[in-house]
Every structure is written in C-alpha cells, then in structure tokens.
Amino acid sequence: MPLDTSSYSLALLRVDGRRWNELRRINAQIRTQAAADGSSYLEMGHTKVMCVVTGPSEPFGPARVGRTGAGAGATAGASGGEAGVVVSIVVAGFSSVDRKRRGRGDKRIQELQSTISSALAASLHTHLFPHSTISISLHVLSQDGSLLAALINAATLACVDAGIPMTDYVAACTAGSTSTYAANDESADPLLDLNHQEEQELPGLTVATLGDSDRVAVLVCESRVQVSRLEGMLAVGVDGCKQVRAILDRVVRDKGRKMVQEGTVQKGVGLEDMEVD
C-alpha cells in the first residue's frame, strides 16, 4: 500500500501525526530479568525488543561454539587480548503483521548481528576482559520500523545493566526524507525516527552515535537517495541520537535512584558493585 505523502505538505504532519523532528514514544526498562547479568526492554513506538547480556564470562567450550555455529553470529576480537562480543538475534515469528519466519542463517540477521557486535565492541572496554565472551541475546517481539536502532539501544542499556565498563552510550535512531528518491526535490524535509510504513516508502538511514559527540559508530542506508540529501538526513539523525541518549540516560538514572531507595544498593557505590546482589 503506497504511503500517502501528499497530505504532508499541507499540514506538515506525518501519517502517525508526528512532526518532522519528533521521536516516537520511547519506553525502556533495565534489569527486567533477575537471572541475567544484564537485561533490558525497549519500545520505540510499536517496535519492541528485549535484550539479555551474559558475561563477561569464560567462553563456551568448543563443542558449544561448534553447535551454535553461524547462529551465534558475529564475534569481534574473538580471542587474544580482548573480550569477544557475541550477538544473537531472534526475530519472533509473531513480530510482524504477517507471520514470517526468519531462520538464523538469514543473511540480513547475520548482518545485523555483526553490526551490533562491532558497534558495541568499540564502546565497551573489552581489553579489560581478555579471553572472555560477552554474549548479547536480542529478541524482537514486535516490529514497526527502526529495528536496528531499537536493537542497538536495547543492547546498550543491557550492557550498562550488566556493569560492563564502557566509554559512553551508543544511541541510535533513524532519519528519512519526505519524498521518494525519484523526485529530485530540493524542498524535501528530513524526518526523524521512521515507522514501518515510512521505512518502506521513503529513503532513510540508521545512525548510531557515541554519547553526546557527533561521532558516528553506525551508519546504514539501504535505499536510493540523492547525495545532496545525505547531509540533512545525517544531521537530523545525529540530533535524534542525542535525544535518544538523554532518554536512555534517564532510564538508567531512574532505575539507579529507585534501587537506592529500595535499599538494593547503597548510595555512592560504583556500577561494578551493583552486580553483587
């Protein structure tokens, strides 16, 4: 079903009623699961993902690694002096409108796994944990666009919860442009945070930045777009990442405050010590 973009120029409102620079509602929780080292749940609009982090721990035996094979996906800096970051993504069959099953051998999934793994490996202080594995398992419960961005944000939160030292948050969001690639229309507005419908019809890209800086860890564009529009989209995307970072930071701080109030942890102890509970 083609997206009706004609109304945009009139009211400057998008299909779901947002303005060009508005994010969808982001709702996130950390420490959702008692057994895991780190866990998080993140909603960006109707895109819902869960993340569980195990480790840093001793790598699984060779038998395990062999069995998981390509499924466990990407490792970064596997052995040697740094911890390997292993990401596995499970896309639930019920996550999209029409049930469609993606095997774990799917190349798209493998690409996502490898992207998240190497994006986080650049922020995590993996050199502190030689010969160990940080295993990140992501579950996609519901998809409505900006999947990669949601996965990166959830993984970041879970790593924070797991108490793995990291440089800063890796925050991600998507940006797009209001008209299709065919039209070389200069007046096209950039858009922030695409939903599924917009992602299908409009050119867009996913950006992830490190912390508050303008430094881009991930930039993925999968649609045809005029090179002149890149700058606008990237600027909006980077700005969106800063907003997302602020939201993620608030989630972590709120949880921390709550844990202090409930007496789970004592005030003033470092993140490291929060793990001992």
């Binding site: 970064a76 793994s117 190497s118 993925v220 045809r224 090179v227």
Partner: peptide, 14 residues
Amino acid sequence: ICQIAKLGGTPVEA
C-alpha cells in the same frame, strides 16, 4: 546513494 554501510567499528565524525 544506493547504499551506505558503516557497520560498527570506531566512531567517526559525521
């Protein structure tokens, strides 16, 4: 642009 892929790695100035 048909595609851009910066799949992780060290962050680079926009």
